[in-house]
Design a protein around this nucleic acid. Structure first.
Lengths: 331, 331
DNA sequence: CTGAAAGCGCTAACAG
DNA sequence: CTGTTAGCGCTTTCAG
């Protein structure tokens, strides 16, 4: 039997007899034969790989998205290759190169702060959807949340409770989400006629350690602070630890609003008031956009901006000063 | 210039002049040339891919491990391909097949409960390290925690506090960790001379929803229960939500011990008493074992079992009955 | 230091 | 329904 026949049998070619197929398959299984992806790729020119590049799988946000996306890919017969960039541009470039080398069909990416020029050109001509963060250099299609409005919402919530000295802890501003968050915060203060004050803004990497340090610095430099907006679920984890260590009672001494909705938000000491993102919808939309790109369908829209929703739980309340005033008032 | 020269230049072949290399590289970059991984693989016969197959990236345990492993691979010039099996044997088989098709250099796997026979044969002859769970059919090398001892520790801690009606919530017993956990729990009760009681054991998928339901059922069927050992960090999340919803106060009404150490364990309403696993060490060891296998070094040991450590925090205390007795005693 | 030629394993086009 | 042939893009001899 010619190797061609074998190939056809294995690929379920219509013009191969059922019994030949059966025989070939049995033998293949017996021999432990496995198709050579390299050879197939070389022949076909394109693969069924889709790449997903995220900064950090420990962030529940990306983990959830990855989970959903992997399921969707599986449904479509694509193999999702998950890469962790650590927000390191050179690693990101490396991952993208390797995706291109493997002739990936398309890429979903949460871009790092400053993609290398190589990374940019690597992406050229490839179906690509940016997720959560977006960088115009990388391509037109993106799915993200309205972070400006989201953080604005969070900040305004605190203002309405009576807070005037509201701190902001968030990601670096060379990432779109970081910048948008900061802008949303500043806009909200401006809209409420609250003047700027130094020492209230802490910008750094989306890691628990940074959140921890941020609260410590804050308490030291601006002890009068009564509330804080934390734009990253990783940072808030550290910040809450710090609060616990320092004996800062939430929301009694300090109101806290989070961003995103890690599933542990509800079972913290005081369930966290947070701005929720429709992560499920967003992930699905990202996949739909990518699939449409793969199918060559013209997307009418190239940007999908999702609105967030403030979920008030137990980590926010009126500030201490006002609370005292109220108590006096009620006496 | 011949394509051979180009290839050599790109691969930094020693017998190519420096200037030719420079020229070739410049042109390649200009043209946006990317090596064809398929062709290279076909020629070389082996790739620099390493596979990591985990059930669920939303589990912080696997997420942390994946993070560490990806870093280690990057250091060694390997590309880690992360696959999510969802504990679904057919998906697992699919992932393994695709890894073999890509001629992956080796595989790290948290095996599903019941790997298919195909999956087993797919793995034959491939350097493979089992992580956390282990199944003798899949291979000899494994890195895991002493789950029996770990859960034994957790259970004994509760017994020592005076609990007698201790429930167990854990993963299914067709997975080694699930079975070991249950065994550890039962052994601890036996060792303490505590008789078995029906309705205390809840076995199911490692998902928050299962933990949520487990507590509800438990409270309904065995209202006298005073403590619970939860063997999965995903399940405990749901269980804590249920406790909150049902107004069960921890540890006043119910003592809870967790397993693993998700980083949010310390900031729950009452910081969780939990059995910690040396996940960092374990991940590193798994990589070392895999690398040794890749280097053809004979491993002296093929199983690495790590000891756990009970970290007592605030979610456990003496049971209500005893507490009343003490209070009476001190009056 | 550079070039020519062969072949990795597969699939698609073209015969039979 | 099955076989023959060619060529995908690369690396590796072997010759210059």
């Amino acid at each position: 039997m010619a190797h061609t026949t074998v190939s056809r049998a294995l690929n379920d070619h219509p013009r191969i007899s059922v019994e030949t197929k059966a025989r070939v398959r049995a033998t293949a299984a017996n021999l432990g034969y496995v198709t050579h992806a390299g050879a197939r790729l070389m022949r076909k020119g394109s693969s069924n790989l889709a790449g997903l590049v995220v900064p950090d799988v420990q962030n529940e946000f990306y983990a959830t998205a990855a989970s959903i996306m992997a399921d969707q890919c599986a449904l479509r017969g694509l193999q999702l290759v998950l890469s962790i960039s650590n927000d390191d541009p050179s690693r990101e470039e490396q991952q993208l190169r390797s995706l291109r080398e493997g002739r990936a069909a398309g890429v979903l990416i949460v871009p790092s702060p400053a993609p290398t020029t190589n990374a940019v050109s690597l992406l050229r001509g490839l179906p690509i959807v940016q997720f959560l963060r977006s960088n115009p250099k990388l391509g037109a299609h993106s799915v993200f949340a309205d972070d400006i409005a989201g953080i604005h919402q969070a900040t305004t919530h605190l203002v309405e409770l009576g807070h005037r000295r509201i701190a902001f802890v968030g990601g670096t501003t060379n990432i779109s989400t970081g910048l948008d968050g900061l802008n949303g915060y500043e806009a909200a203060l401006r809209d409420s006629g609250i003047g700027r004050e130094t020492g209230l803004i802490h910008i750094g990497p989306a890691r628990p350690e940074f959140g921890y340090g941020a609260l410590e610095t804050l308490l030291e430099n601006v002890p009068a602070v009564t509330a804080v907006v934390v734009a990253s679920s990783r940072q808030i984890l550290g910040l809450l630890c710090a609060a616990q260590t320092r004996g800062v009672s939430i929301p009694h001494d300090l109101s806290v609003v989070g961003y995103g909705d890690a599933d542990w938000f509800t079972i913290t000491r005081r369930a966290l008031t947070a701005v929720e993102l429709p992560i499920c919808d967003m992930s699905m939309q990202a996949m739909t956009t990518l699939f449409n790109l793969l199918d060559g369908k013209k997307e009418q829209r190239s940007e999908f901006r999702y609105q967030t929703r403030l979920r008030v739980r137990a980590s926010t309340s009126v500030p201490p000063a006002r609370r005292r005033a109220r108590q006096r008032g009620s006496e």
